[in-house]
């Protein structure tokens, strides 16, 4: 672990913190364009965060310490996730701290805390949101793990860095298993990031919301941290998807040139990914909550199919 490696690790984290709201803003802007609305400024999420940080926290009477503690934990989990996923380089010092399975665990930890916090005040919407979040979570998590299993079997490793290096170095062949895994991963990331077919980030219609229902009681800096963490989660998922399915352009080792080149490549990939996300969101409608299991069940099926295809067709190639 070199000093420059540590610096680059810090830089990757700071970059994640800085880019995450921008990505959210970009997706919102694209969505507005596609839906023929006038778009909010690109930097709108930063203004929001600044405004929320300035405001007082208004805490409900029944709130416990867990409620005040949870936003920080969720934020910390997302920072860790962004630090582990190779955004710029595969050779950063925090990469061996957690492999892909532990990464799923980080998301799970954040989910448990936010759901518990939602139940803490004891309002009807809070517990409704918490329950639905856990529902989406337990459906999405196995699918995500199966996607990871498929990639791990191709690269003989669960370490994110090794997976990315292996996938980036092989010849450009479209593996059918990776195609299935990619579809499953897209489905899962929509669900996990509270995006349209499962949840709507822009809604405040009480009966349909999941993520918003959980954070109804939050305000001020707590809300800011949760919003920021949500942005980080979208960023983490996008980077994970890019790293697994489009791993080209991520630096290996810590040469200055490779790392500097990785930044514009990452930004370009995120911009395209964000626009696609907005596009998919715009042509879909939010489904009823009890259609969400079908949606995620399909994702799970695709993921297992990917795994089976890998085992049946590709192992002897």
């Amino acid at each position: 672990m070199s000093f420059s490696g540590l610096l680059w690790q810090l830089f990757a984290i700071v970059l994640a913190l800085a880019l995450a709201p921008l990505l959210t803003g970009w997706v919102n802007q694209c969505r507005a364009w596609m839906q023929n609305r006038s778009a909010p400024p690109l930097l709108q999420p930063y203004y929001m965060l600044h405004k929320l940080f300035l405001k007082d926290v208004v805490l409900a009477h029944g709130a416990s310490h867990l409620f005040r503690f949870a936003p920080f934990v969720v934020f910390g989990c997302m920072v860790l996730a962004c630090a582990i996923i190779p955004t710029l380089s595969t050779d950063l010092p925090l990469a061996p701290a957690a492999d892909t399975i532990a990464l799923v665990g980080v998301f799970g930890l954040a989910r448990i805390f936010i759901s518990l916090a939602a139940m803490d005040i004891g309002t009807s919407f809070g517990s409704l949101g918490g329950r639905r979040e856990m529902l989406v979570g337990f459906l999405a998590e196995p699918a995500l793990l199966m996607v990871i299993f498929t990639t791990a079997m191709i690269s003989q490793s669960t370490s994110v860095a090794t997976i990315v290096e292996t996938l980036a170095h092989r010849d450009f062949i479209i593996y059918p298993s990776m195609a299935f895994a990619g579809i499953a991963f897209t489905f899962v990331s929509f669900a996990e990031n509270a995006r349209v077919p499962v949840d709507n980030p822009a809604t405040h219609l009480e009966l349909t919301m999941i993520h918003e229902a959980m954070i109804l009681e939050y305000s001020g800096r707590h809300l800011a941290l949760i919003e920021w963490a949500a942005g980080l989660k979208l960023y983490a998922y996008s980077c994970l998807g890019l790293a697994l399915f489009f791993p080209w352009g991520i630096a290996e080792g810590d040469s200055m040139f490779g790392l500097l080149l990785a930044i514009p490549v990452l930004v370009a990939k995120l911009a395209i990914g964000g626009a696609l996300l907005a596009g998919i969101e715009s042509v879909n409608a939010k489904v009823r909550i009890f259609r969400a299991p079908e949606f995620l069940g399909t994702a799970f099926l695709f993921a297992v199919l990917g795994l089976l295809v890998r085992l049946l067709l590709e192992t002897r190639v």
């Binding site: 208004v58 005040i121 309002t123």
Partner: peptide, 14 residues
Amino acid sequence: LYHGRLRRSAAWDC
């Protein structure tokens, strides 16, 4: 950078 102010109130619950 900002502040640590906090006040209590009834729950919002829409």
